[in-house]
């Protein structure tokens, strides 16, 4: 992918989570969709305010779990029935009760790994570069005591001049333009 150029978005800084949440709620009411909030600690109201929606992590976890289950059960069946048939105390080769425990363990293992890596992948992590770190106030404040709302340039409503005016109407501490 060629390097993106131009404006990533407009970043508004707030001093308190309440200001941020109010601004985010207003922006969503006014039709903004491509936007995000950045806070030093989880602020659930902010996630709600920008329309936090369900994601695909549960589905990925389910599929991962089922894959683990099927893979292990198939492996055990293949080993015991076809590849290396052994007579163990006269039990049938296909002794499914004995297969359950490893299959169960693999279900858990695959589901857990799928959940963790699926979450990271859907978050776009690991990210070696993010344009927001070009903003000095973001670099210094986002992990300590500042609250940010970013309107992204991908939003169809986005316009550099109008967007800045709009954000300023929400009474932020500052509004800066963020370049890719």
């Amino acid at each position: 992918m060629p390097a993106r150029e131009g404006t990533y978005g407009l970043l508004a800084e707030f001093d308190t989570p309440s200001d941020l949440v109010r601004a985010a709620q207003q922006a969503r009411r006014d039709g903004w969709r491509r936007m995000d909030c950045y806070t030093p600690y989880p602020v659930e109201e902010a996630a709600e305010a920008i329309g936090f929606h369900r994601n695909k992590v549960p589905l990925i976890t389910l599929i991962g779990g089922l894959m683990g289950l099927v893979a292990m059960f198939a492996l055990e069946t293949w080993v015991s029935v076809l590849a290396y048939p052994l007579n163990i105390a006269g039990r049938p080769l296909y002794s499914w009760p004995a297969f359950i425990v490893p299959a169960y363990e693999w279900t858990i293992l695959f589901a857990g790994l799928s959940a963790a890596f699926g979450m990271l992948a859907l978050n776009g992590l690991p990210a070696l570069y993010h344009p927001l770190f070009n903003a000095p106030n973001f670099r210094n404040g986002a992990t300590t005591d500042k609250f940010f709302l970013c309107l992204e340039a991908l939003d169809p409503k986005f316009d550099l001049v109008e967007g800045r005016k709009y954000l300023e109407s929400l009474n932020p501490v500052s509004v800066v333009e963020v370049e890719y």
Binding site: P17, S18, R22
Partner: peptide
Amino acid sequence: MGHEAHAK
């Protein structure tokens, strides 16, 4: 936080 003062 200021924006949620609606305890029942």
